[in-house]
C-alpha cells in the first residue's frame, strides 16, 4: 500500500520554551541536535537545560541521525494510520518519534532507521525516521 503521510501539528511555537528553542531553530535549518552533558558526558533525551543524570551543564551537538527501532505500534484506528515508535539513537538515548515513508506493516523492532525531517503545520519540521 502506498504510504500516506498524516498531517503533523506542532505544539506551541519554538520560543514557547527558551530552553529548547535552539533545537527547533536547528530543525528549521535541517540540523538534528542532541544534548550532551559536559560533566558526565552522557547524551540525553528529550533535551534539557541541566543533565537529567547529574544536573551538570550541557551542550548541543549535531546527532548522527542513525538509530534502531526500540519499540513500535502502528496506530490503525486513526484517520491516517501511522507508526509510533521509540528509536534508540546511535548516541544512546531513546526518543519518541514516527517511522515514515515505508510499509508500516513490514516494520520490526531492532530495524535500522535514519533521520528524516517531516514538515509540520504551525512549526518547524520535526525529526522522524525511515528504514535504512
Amino acid at each position: 500500500m502506498a504510504y500516506v503521510q498524516r498531517k503533523i501539528s506542532f505544539a506551541g511555537a519554538p520560543d514557547t520554551n527558551p530552553e529548547t528553542k535552539p533545537f527547533w531553530d536547528a530543525c528549521a535549518a535541517g540540523k538534528f541536535l542532541i544534548r550532551r552533558c559536559t560533566s558526565c558526558k552522557k547524551a540525553h533525551w528529550y533535551p534539557r537545560g541541566l543533565c537529567p543524570f547529574c544536573f551538570g551543564t550541557c551542550a548541543w551537538e549535531e546527532g548522527s541521525g542513525k538509530g534502531k527501532i526500540y519499540s513500535l505500534s502502528v496506530m490503525k484506528r486513526a484517520e491516517v494510520p501511522f507508526a509510533m515508535a521509540y528509536v534508540e539513537l546511535a548516541e544512546g538515548p531513546k526518543m519518541m518519534t514516527n517511522i515514515v515513508d515505508c510499509d508500516l506493516d513490514a516494520l520490526k523492532i531492532g530495524q535500522d532507521v535514519k533521520l528524516k525531517f517531516v514538515p509540520t503545520e504551525g512549526g518547524p519540521p520535526v525529526p522522524m525516521f525511515t528504514p535504512v
Binding site: R6, I8, S9, F10, A11, G12, T16, N17, E19, T20, W24, W45, Y46, P47, R48, Y70, S71, L72, S73, M75, R77, A78, F82, M84, A85, Y86, M95, M96, T97, N98, I109, G110, T120, G123, V126, M128
Partner: peptide, 29 residues
C-alpha cells in the same frame, strides 16, 4: 505546552493506546 515533554511528543501522535501498545510490543519482542 509548558509541560517540558510536550513539544517532543505531541507532534508524533501519542495516544493512551499506542503508548501502552509499545510496551506490549517490546514485551513480546
Amino acid at each position: 505546552v509548558a509541560q517540558p515533554d510536550v513539544q517532543f511528543e505531541y507532534p508524533y501522535g501519542p495516544t493512551v493506546v499506542n503508548m501502552y501498545a509499545m510496551c506490549a510490543a517490546r514485551h513480546m519482542y
